[in-house]
Amino acid sequence: MSGSVEAVLGADEDVGREPATPEIERGASLWRDAWHRLGKNKLALISLFVFIAIALFCVVGPFLSPWDSQQQDLMIGAQGPSATHWFGTDTLGRDLMVRVMEGGRISLMVGLIATLVALLIGVLYGATAGYLGGKTDAVMMRLVDILYALPFTIFVILLMVAFGRSLWLMFVAIGFVEWLSMARIVRSGVMALRKQEFIEAAVSLGYSHRRIILKHLIPNVLGPVIVVATLTVPAVMLLEAFLSFLGLGVQPPNASWGVLINEGQQNMEIFPWLLIFPAFFFALTLFSLNFLGDGLRDALDPKSARD
């Protein structure tokens, strides 16, 4: 399962080899074109809507439900879907639908925030390395190589053990792993851009490094970065699920989708609904994010503009 880290790294590295359009001026039309191309990709569009629908379900749902996710009724125990409990109840008699919604909030939050952490570190780090080049770049990227070769499982467990269990730590731990691929992609994008005239012009105008990196370089590698980010969210959610399997997930009585699915798979033939509902939403979210990411990649790839 921790293979997914490497998988995403490998999967997305090729994105960076084709930097987005090199000129700021063309930026606006690029985005318009990309949106237009995305519109032609039905699967990606459907995915976008599905994702939004699931997010709404999880965020708004608990307010509409009459049930409290922590309210137990040991007398009823695990029961299948019914008119009162649409998704059934778990083994402690808690309403599964609310738990799925609230689990979705946690899983999506883990996915989004950890990706954001990765994005922030990765983009700044990669852009700096790529822009400065030379020895600095070599040293910075060697550091990435080193971190990349650390086995994720061992480190997450040690981190959790060292700093206790908290949601924030999980963001940091996962973000810490995922920023590496982000940094590599941004770096190679920036490297290609650095030679372009408009950057050299900016340098000759005496703009500060900071300004050049933040204002000129990063906006131009944003395309691939968005693609990678979209694909990182599902990868992060899978990692979170893996941690739940190890029992390292969020603290009870809260439960992420990972925790719910892990609980469900243990009794899949006697209480199938405990697996089916959370797994359905989890898989659907991952499906839609993956297809959205692939669609965005197709849309933002300047080569396909010539179609």
Partner: peptide, 27 residues
């Protein structure tokens, strides 16, 4: 975890006390 969750709920319902659950690795 399940036992702790059940007792957590009993204390909340019966006594109005809200305790958390914190899990750590064996060692």
């Amino acid at each position: 975890r399940k036992i702790a969750e059940a007792i957590q709920a009993m204390w909340r319902e019966n006594l109005g006390i809200d305790v958390g659950i914190y899990n750590q690795e064996w060692k």
